[in-house]
Each structure stands twice: as structure tokens, then as C-alpha cells.
């Protein structure tokens, strides 16, 4: 009985457990995207010419820019984990702010990229796309679905990092309990990791 009371007073927290839980979630995300990459690979194999021509429609410069800025945001997110441990609150908030700003810029780029495609009559189910043929429909279908799903992850990551920033600001997340920041970082790096594969598959291999 006395043991129960001791436990109740010492608020139990298992950071290692939280981290393993986050990794398990990341594994499920990995399987989700791995399935899509396999679908992409198989359809590319079955429609090599159409995929080759369709990929040339995508702007390599915009893709490269988005890759570089996403890598930068991963670095600032990782640095935030260091800053919080050094008890530098202002620096942590600045780094989180930069990460959020870059995430926003990524979405702005994505918006203009998609808007351009829509302007050319290329969107799922469009007449122009149907006339281009089966392979192009598959390529752009996968392009919109996979980059769209990735963009959804960016939005979720944005919300998550915002919550972390608010908690750092009101001192409920400090160097004593940085696990939420670390796990949000893991999620953000996963988003980066997926983009590292999406970028060459859609933009570069043409």
C-alpha cells in the first residue's frame, strides 16, 4: 500500500516509451508510403514512356527548392531539440518559428505548383488528362495523391510544432520534459524523409 502512495506522488513519465511509441507510428507511416511507392514503381514499369514524358512536365527547379528548404527546416527542428536542452528558451522558439515559416513556404510553393498544373487542365479527372491517355492519368493521379498526402503531413506537422512552440512559450515544455519536442521532431524528419524519395521519383527520373 505504501508503495502505491509513493508512485502516486512521483508522477511517472516514460520518455523512452514515448519515443518507442512515436517510432512505431513512424513505421506505420513508412508502410503506408512504401505501398504507394510500390504502386508507383509497378505502374512506371508498365507505362515507361508515358511516365517518362509526364515527369518532364514537372518543374525541377521548384522541386529542388522545396527539397532544400525542407532539409533546412529539418535541421532547425533538430537544433530546437538541442536548444531546449541547453535551456535556451528564446533560441528554441526562434528555431521552431523558422521551422514553421519554412513549412509555410513549402506549402506556398506547392500551392503555386498545383495551381499551375490546374491551369494547364491537369488535375484528377480532368478532360485534358483523360485525352493524354492511361499512363499520364496514372502518373498525375499518383503525383497528386502522393504529394497531396505528403502535404497533409506537412499541415499536421505544422499544427504539432505550433503546439510545441506554445508549450515552450508558457514553460510547460522545458529541458526537464522535452519529449514532445523530440517526438514532433521525429515526425517532421519523417515528412522530410518521405520527400527525399518523392522528389527524385517524380521530378528527377524523367
Amino acid at each position: 500500500m505504501s508503495q502505491t502512495i509513493t508512485v502516486a506522488h512521483d508522477i511517472h513519465r516514460d520518455d523512452e516509451g514515448s519515443k518507442i511509441g512515436m517510432w512505431l507510428f513512424i513505421f506505420t507511416e513508412l508502410l503506408l508510403f512504401a505501398g504507394l511507392f510500390i504502386v508507383y514503381g509497378v505502374y512506371r514499369y508498365l507505362n515507361p514512356v508515358a511516365f517518362h514524358l509526364a515527369a518532364e512536365e514537372l518543374n525541377v527547379t521548384v522541386g529542388t527548392l522545396n527539397t532544400v528548404i525542407l532539409l533546412c527546416s529539418s535541421a532547425t527542428m533538430a537544433m530546437a531539440s538541442t536548444a531546449i536542452r541547453m535551456r535556451k528558451k528564446a533560441l528554441t522558439l526562434t528555431l521552431l518559428g523558422i521551422t514553421l515559416f519554412i513549412a509555410f513556404m513549402f506549402m506556398v510553393n506547392k500551392y503555386f505548383e498545383w495551381k499551375g498544373k490546374f491551369g494547364h487542365g491537369i488535375f484528377p479527372g480532368s478532360e485534358d488528362l483523360l485525352q493524354l491517355g492511361h499512363g499520364d492519368t496514372l502518373f498525375f493521379g499518383l503525383y497528386f495523391f502522393m504529394t497531396g498526402l505528403h502535404a497533409l503531413h506537412i499541415i499536421i506537422g505544422f499544427i504539432l510544432i505550433t503546439i510545441v512552440a506554445v508549450r515552450v512559450n508558457n514553460n510547460s515544455l522545458t529541458s526537464e520534459n522535452p519529449v514532445l519536442l523530440d517526438n514532433s521532431g521525429l515526425y517532421w524528419h519523417l515528412v522530410d524523409l518521405i520527400w527525399i524519395f518523392l522528389f527524385p521519383l517524380f521530378y528527377l527520373i524523367a
Binding site: A78, H189, L193, I196
Partner: peptide, 18 residues
């Protein structure tokens, strides 16, 4: 392209993901 992407993801996993 896949090889370079794999190397990059390895670096992200080892360093950024700690």
C-alpha cells in the same frame, strides 16, 4: 537517384532522428 536518396535518408535517420 534511388541510391543518393537512400544515402540522404540514412543521414537523416542517423543524425536528425538521433
Amino acid at each position: 537517384a534511388i541510391l543518393l536518396a537512400s544515402i540522404k535518408s540514412g543521414i537523416v535517420l542517423v543524425y536528425f532522428m538521433h
